[in-house]
Design a protein around this nucleic acid. Structure first.
Length: 271
DNA sequence: AGTGCGGCCTGTCCGC
DNA sequence: TGCGGACAGGCCGCAC
């Protein structure tokens, strides 16, 4: 399941193949994604050069002189670069055929992903406009999170997974960051101390940074552009480790549903 | 306004 | 073996 590290890894992986390339055409085989793939994408994109590949939250942005193509991997989406002649497989919903003879191929069995076209600045798109800061934004600090959380009754885990608060913290890394910060996922956000948020922000940055370094976490659906797995899975301390010994203290890791999401924590190390 | 939850999807796994 | 059902999850949009 692609979280921010997986999306970042994907953006980095496709960048050398698509930046500076011309789009020859677009082949849409299935437009029923999270949002319908816009009609006329071939007409819009053909002949445009991809100026840059970037990422905002979990969106991959392909910038052209006429607008920006926003790609979200949902939870089972993948982007691969393959020769344009490669026969499509099941769930290969869309190809962006490049002047190089290769194509950027979007594959998404669950179709929670999306491919959208924005004419103006991507930040003005409704899906991006109200998003919170990037975790690695230097302007982001613990005080921001602390202030925003005052009076909030939802759990700290739900709070950090809320894209309006901070982007890019998905289910896996939320559990992992809370473990590192020693905070129980079920604690009310409004009851987390200033120190707690300092620890938590540090932990979020560490976990995401390490996961990017490792090429992401490979669980179920995700693999890198090259098809090789990410290696962060072996660094997970609590996620999907219910009943196993805490790496810190040996106490059994607990699993609890919070906000309809599986959450994992050590009852000893996390208060 | 903040909170909780339904719904979108399919592959995988489990029990019968 | 085959089948149904539960589950996984990002995140929007609705209802309270």
């Amino acid at each position: 399941m692609p979280e921010l590290p997986e999306v970042e890894t994907t953006a980095q992986g496709v960048r050398p193949y698509v930046e500076g390339r011309m789009i020859r055409r677009v082949i849409v085989r299935e437009r029923r994604l999270r949002w319908p793939v816009p009609r006329g994408l071939t007409r819009i994109l053909s002949g445009l050069k991809i100026l840059s590949v970037s990422r905002r939250a979990k969106y991959i942005l392909l910038d052209t002189e006429k607008g920006v193509l926003m790609i979200h991997l949902g939870m089972s989406g993948r982007l691969r670069v393959v020769p344009a002649s490669t026969p499509p497989e099941k769930h290969d919903h869309l190809d962006i055929v490049l002047s190089s003879g290769k194509c950027l191929r979007f594959h998404d069995p669950r179709r929670f992903g999306s491919v959208l076209w924005v004419k103006g600045l991507p930040d003005e798109h409704p899906l991006l406009a109200s998003l919170g800061p990037e975790p690695f934004d230097p302007a982001l600090d613990a005080s921001y999170l602390f202030d925003l959380s005052r009076g909030r009754t939802l759990t700290i885990k739900q709070f950090i997974m809320d894209g309006k608060v901070i982007v890019g913290v998905g289910n896996i890394y939320a559990s992992e960051a809370l473990f590192r910060a020693g905070i129980r996922p079920g604690r009310a956000a409004g009851r987390v101390t200033r120190k707690g948020f300092a620890d938590l922000l540090k932990a979020i940055r560490e976990v995401l940074g390490e996961a990017i370094e490792a090429g992401g976490t490979t669980l179920r659906d995700y693999s890198r552009v090259t098809g090789e797995p990410g290696y962060f899975e072996q660094s997970l301390n609590v996620y999907e480790r219910e009943g196993l010994a805490c790496v810190n203290c040996g106490v059994s890791i607990q699993r609890k549903i919070i906000g309809q999401r599986a959450s994992y924590y050590c009852p000893q190390c996390q208060a």
